[in-house]
Protein backbone atom coordinates (compact mmCIF):
# COMPACT_ATOMS: atom_id res chain seq x y z
CA UNK A 1 0.00 0.00 0.00
CA UNK A 2 1.31 3.42 -0.82
CA UNK A 3 0.20 6.78 0.49
CA UNK A 4 0.04 9.58 -2.00
CA UNK A 5 0.96 13.14 -1.12
CA UNK A 6 0.40 16.46 -2.79
CA UNK A 7 3.41 17.80 -4.70
CA UNK A 8 3.77 20.68 -2.25
CA UNK A 9 4.02 18.25 0.67
CA UNK A 10 6.55 16.17 -1.24
CA UNK A 11 8.54 19.36 -1.74
CA UNK A 12 8.48 20.17 1.97
CA UNK A 13 9.37 16.60 3.00
CA UNK A 14 12.25 16.67 0.51
CA UNK A 15 13.54 19.98 1.89
CA UNK A 16 13.52 18.42 5.36
CA UNK A 17 15.50 15.43 4.06
CA UNK A 18 18.09 17.92 2.78
CA UNK A 19 18.44 19.34 6.28
CA UNK A 20 16.68 22.62 5.54
CA UNK A 21 15.46 24.43 8.65
CA UNK A 22 14.82 27.99 7.47
CA UNK A 23 13.46 29.37 4.17
CA UNK A 24 12.90 32.95 3.02
CA UNK A 25 10.16 34.14 0.70
CA UNK A 26 6.79 35.67 -0.17
CA UNK A 27 3.56 33.86 -1.04
CA UNK A 28 1.43 34.68 -4.06
CA UNK A 29 -1.15 33.13 -6.36
CA UNK A 30 1.04 30.51 -7.97
CA UNK A 31 2.86 29.27 -4.86
CA UNK A 32 -0.01 29.26 -2.33
CA UNK A 33 -0.05 25.43 -2.16
CA UNK A 34 3.67 25.48 -1.35
CA UNK A 35 3.30 28.08 1.41
CA UNK A 36 0.30 26.20 2.80
CA UNK A 37 2.39 23.04 3.04
CA UNK A 38 5.29 24.98 4.59
CA UNK A 39 2.91 26.55 7.10
CA UNK A 40 1.83 23.07 8.23
CA UNK A 41 5.42 21.86 8.59
CA UNK A 42 8.17 22.32 11.17
CA UNK A 43 10.20 24.54 8.85
CA UNK A 44 10.83 28.14 9.83
CA UNK A 45 9.39 30.37 7.09
CA UNK A 46 10.61 33.96 7.04
CA UNK A 47 8.34 36.41 5.22
CA UNK A 48 10.40 39.11 3.55
CA UNK A 49 9.22 42.48 2.27
CA UNK A 50 10.59 42.07 -1.24
CA UNK A 51 11.72 38.94 -3.10
CA UNK A 52 15.18 40.44 -3.66
CA UNK A 53 15.51 40.46 0.12
CA UNK A 54 14.56 36.76 0.23
CA UNK A 55 17.27 35.86 -2.29
CA UNK A 56 19.95 37.87 -0.46
CA UNK A 57 18.88 36.39 2.89
CA UNK A 58 19.23 32.87 1.50
CA UNK A 59 22.63 33.93 0.17
CA UNK A 60 23.77 35.48 3.48
CA UNK A 61 22.51 32.39 5.32
CA UNK A 62 24.56 30.17 3.00
CA UNK A 63 27.72 32.28 3.28
CA UNK A 64 27.53 32.42 7.08
CA UNK A 65 26.78 28.71 7.61
CA UNK A 66 28.13 26.83 4.60
CA UNK A 67 24.72 25.23 4.12
CA UNK A 68 22.41 25.66 1.12
CA UNK A 69 20.17 28.74 1.39
CA UNK A 70 16.56 28.50 0.20
CA UNK A 71 14.29 31.27 -1.12
CA UNK A 72 10.77 31.18 -2.54
CA UNK A 73 8.74 33.50 -4.73
CA UNK A 74 5.57 33.36 -6.73
CA UNK A 75 5.41 33.39 -10.53
CA UNK A 76 5.96 36.43 -12.78
CA UNK A 77 7.02 39.50 -10.76
CA UNK A 78 7.90 37.39 -7.71
CA UNK A 79 10.35 35.41 -9.80
CA UNK A 80 11.77 38.42 -11.65
CA UNK A 81 12.32 40.18 -8.32
CA UNK A 82 14.55 37.27 -7.30
CA UNK A 83 16.83 37.67 -10.31
CA UNK A 84 19.30 40.20 -8.83
CA UNK A 85 19.74 37.99 -5.78
CA UNK A 86 20.22 34.85 -7.87
CA UNK A 87 22.78 36.63 -10.07
CA UNK A 88 24.62 37.85 -6.95
CA UNK A 89 24.88 34.27 -5.65
CA UNK A 90 25.93 33.02 -9.08
CA UNK A 91 28.84 35.44 -9.41
CA UNK A 92 30.20 34.52 -5.97
CA UNK A 93 29.51 30.75 -6.30
CA UNK A 94 27.06 30.59 -3.39
CA UNK A 95 24.83 27.50 -2.97
CA UNK A 96 21.23 28.72 -3.12
CA UNK A 97 18.07 26.89 -4.20
CA UNK A 98 15.37 29.26 -5.49
CA UNK A 99 11.85 27.82 -5.71
CA UNK A 100 9.41 29.76 -7.86
CA UNK A 101 5.70 29.35 -8.50
CA UNK A 102 4.56 29.09 -12.09
CA UNK A 103 1.18 29.23 -13.83
CA UNK A 104 -0.40 25.82 -14.37
CA UNK A 105 1.11 23.75 -17.13
CA UNK A 106 -1.98 23.96 -19.37
CA UNK A 107 -1.59 27.74 -19.78
CA UNK A 108 2.21 28.09 -19.89
CA UNK A 109 3.04 30.20 -22.93
CA UNK A 110 -0.41 31.81 -23.05
CA UNK A 111 0.54 35.11 -21.37
CA UNK A 112 -1.46 34.00 -18.35
CA UNK A 113 -1.79 36.29 -15.31
CA UNK A 114 1.58 36.67 -13.57
CA UNK A 115 3.30 34.48 -16.12
CA UNK A 116 6.97 34.91 -16.95
CA UNK A 117 9.46 32.56 -18.54
CA UNK A 118 11.38 32.18 -15.28
CA UNK A 119 13.60 29.35 -16.53
CA UNK A 120 14.54 31.42 -19.58
CA UNK A 121 15.11 34.64 -17.64
CA UNK A 122 17.33 32.97 -15.02
CA UNK A 123 19.25 30.57 -17.27
CA UNK A 124 22.36 32.78 -17.61
CA UNK A 125 22.56 33.34 -13.83
CA UNK A 126 21.90 29.83 -12.51
CA UNK A 127 24.12 26.78 -12.39
CA UNK A 128 21.10 24.69 -13.38
CA UNK A 129 17.31 24.93 -13.44
CA UNK A 130 14.34 22.55 -13.36
CA UNK A 131 10.71 22.84 -14.46
CA UNK A 132 8.63 20.26 -12.56
CA UNK A 133 5.47 19.33 -14.46
CA UNK A 134 4.61 16.18 -12.54
CA UNK A 135 4.73 15.69 -8.75
CA UNK A 136 6.32 12.28 -9.36
CA UNK A 137 9.48 14.20 -10.35
CA UNK A 138 9.45 16.46 -7.29
CA UNK A 139 11.59 14.48 -4.86
CA UNK A 140 14.25 13.61 -7.45
CA UNK A 141 14.45 17.24 -8.61
CA UNK A 142 14.91 18.58 -5.07
CA UNK A 143 17.62 16.00 -4.38
CA UNK A 144 19.44 16.92 -7.61
CA UNK A 145 19.01 20.65 -7.06
CA UNK A 146 20.68 20.55 -3.64
CA UNK A 147 23.42 18.28 -4.95
CA UNK A 148 24.21 20.54 -7.91
CA UNK A 149 24.02 23.73 -5.82
CA UNK A 150 26.48 22.49 -3.21
CA UNK A 151 29.03 20.37 -5.11
CA UNK A 152 31.93 21.25 -7.39
CA UNK A 153 31.91 25.00 -7.91
CA UNK A 154 28.74 25.84 -5.95
CA UNK A 155 26.00 28.06 -7.32
CA UNK A 156 22.29 28.83 -7.41
CA UNK A 157 19.79 26.30 -8.78
CA UNK A 158 16.22 27.20 -9.65
CA UNK A 159 13.15 24.97 -9.37
CA UNK A 160 10.07 26.29 -11.21
CA UNK A 161 6.81 24.75 -9.95
CA UNK A 162 3.59 25.12 -11.97
CA UNK A 163 0.57 25.08 -9.65
CA UNK A 164 -0.57 21.63 -10.79
CA UNK A 165 2.77 20.04 -9.87
CA UNK A 166 2.18 21.19 -6.29
CA UNK A 167 -1.53 20.23 -5.96
CA UNK A 168 -1.53 16.91 -7.82
CA UNK A 169 -0.58 13.85 -5.85
CA UNK A 170 2.14 11.25 -6.15
CA UNK A 171 3.88 8.67 -4.05
CA UNK A 172 6.70 10.07 -1.92
CA UNK A 173 9.94 8.19 -2.35
CA UNK A 174 13.08 10.09 -1.60
CA UNK A 175 16.00 8.96 -3.76
CA UNK A 176 19.07 7.66 -1.97
CA UNK A 177 21.58 8.96 -4.45
CA UNK A 178 21.78 11.18 -7.48
CA UNK A 179 22.67 10.13 -10.98
CA UNK A 180 22.79 13.16 -13.23
CA UNK A 181 23.87 12.65 -16.81
CA UNK A 182 26.58 15.07 -17.87
CA UNK A 183 27.36 16.32 -14.34
CA UNK A 184 30.73 14.88 -13.55
CA UNK A 185 32.63 16.29 -10.64
CA UNK A 186 36.30 16.90 -10.94
CA UNK A 187 36.52 16.01 -7.27
CA UNK A 188 35.70 12.43 -8.06
CA UNK A 189 38.31 11.26 -10.56
CA UNK A 190 41.94 10.86 -9.66
CA UNK A 191 43.74 14.05 -8.73
CA UNK A 192 46.52 14.96 -11.19
CA UNK A 193 49.52 13.72 -9.19
CA UNK A 194 52.15 14.51 -11.81
CA UNK A 195 50.96 18.08 -12.18
CA UNK A 196 50.94 18.51 -8.40
CA UNK A 197 54.52 17.22 -8.25
CA UNK A 198 55.50 19.87 -10.82
CA UNK A 199 53.84 22.51 -8.66
CA UNK A 200 55.77 21.34 -5.60
CA UNK A 201 58.99 21.63 -7.60
CA UNK A 202 58.09 25.14 -8.79
CA UNK A 203 57.45 26.13 -5.17
CA UNK A 204 60.80 24.66 -4.10
CA UNK A 205 62.57 26.74 -6.79
CA UNK A 206 60.84 30.03 -5.93
CA UNK A 207 62.41 32.82 -3.89
CA UNK A 208 59.53 35.31 -3.66
CA UNK A 209 56.35 33.24 -3.65
CA UNK A 210 52.90 34.60 -2.84
CA UNK A 211 49.63 32.77 -2.19
CA UNK A 212 46.50 34.29 -3.73
CA UNK A 213 43.60 32.47 -2.08
CA UNK A 214 39.92 32.82 -2.96
CA UNK A 215 36.65 31.72 -1.45
CA UNK A 216 37.02 28.42 -3.34
CA UNK A 217 39.24 27.37 -0.44
CA UNK A 218 36.31 27.93 1.90
CA UNK A 219 33.81 26.15 -0.38
CA UNK A 220 36.15 23.14 -0.47
CA UNK A 221 36.51 23.13 3.32
CA UNK A 222 40.26 23.47 2.81
CA UNK A 223 41.10 26.31 5.25
CA UNK A 224 43.23 24.00 7.41
CA UNK A 225 45.09 22.62 4.38
CA UNK A 226 45.82 26.14 3.13
CA UNK A 227 47.09 27.20 6.55
CA UNK A 228 49.30 24.11 6.61
CA UNK A 229 50.75 24.94 3.18
CA UNK A 230 51.55 28.49 4.28
CA UNK A 231 53.02 27.33 7.57
CA UNK A 232 55.17 24.57 6.09
CA UNK A 233 56.56 26.60 3.23
CA UNK A 234 56.49 29.98 5.01
CA UNK A 235 54.85 31.58 1.98
CA UNK A 236 52.91 34.82 2.64
CA UNK A 237 49.36 35.32 1.39
CA UNK A 238 47.54 38.19 -0.22
CA UNK A 239 46.33 39.78 2.99
CA UNK A 240 43.17 41.39 4.34
CA UNK A 241 40.67 41.03 1.54
CA UNK A 242 40.26 37.33 2.13
CA UNK A 243 41.05 37.07 5.80
CA UNK A 244 37.39 36.70 6.60
CA UNK A 245 36.79 34.37 3.70
CA UNK A 246 39.58 31.90 4.26
Amino acid sequence: MTTNMKGAHILVESLKREGVETVFGIPGGANLPTFDALHRSSLKVILTVHEQGAAHMADGYARATGKVGVCLATSGPGATNLVTGIATAFMDSIPVVAITGQVRTSVIGNDAFQEADTIGITRPVTKHSFLVKDPREMARVVKEAFYIASTGRPGPVLIDLPVDATVNEAEFVYPERVNIRGYRLHAEPEIPRDAIRNVAEAIARSRQPVIYAGAGVLHAGASAELAELARTTRIPGSPHRHRGAV
Binding site: L185, H186, A187, I191, P192, R193, A195, I196, V199, A200, G216, V217, H219, A220, G221, A222, E225, L226, E228, L229, T232
Partner: peptide, 13 residues
Amino acid sequence: IVGDVKRVLQELN
Protein backbone atom coordinates in the same frame (compact mmCIF):
# COMPACT_ATOMS: atom_id res chain seq x y z
CA ILE B 1 45.47 22.14 -11.86
CA VAL B 2 41.79 21.20 -12.08
CA GLY B 3 40.62 19.45 -8.97
CA ASP B 4 39.06 19.63 -5.56
CA VAL B 5 41.14 22.21 -3.69
CA LYS B 6 41.15 20.21 -0.46
CA ARG B 7 42.45 17.02 -2.05
CA VAL B 8 44.99 18.84 -4.20
CA LEU B 9 46.34 20.73 -1.18
CA GLN B 10 46.51 17.54 0.87
CA GLU B 11 48.66 15.97 -1.83
CA LEU B 12 50.73 19.13 -2.24
CA ASN B 13 51.31 19.37 1.51
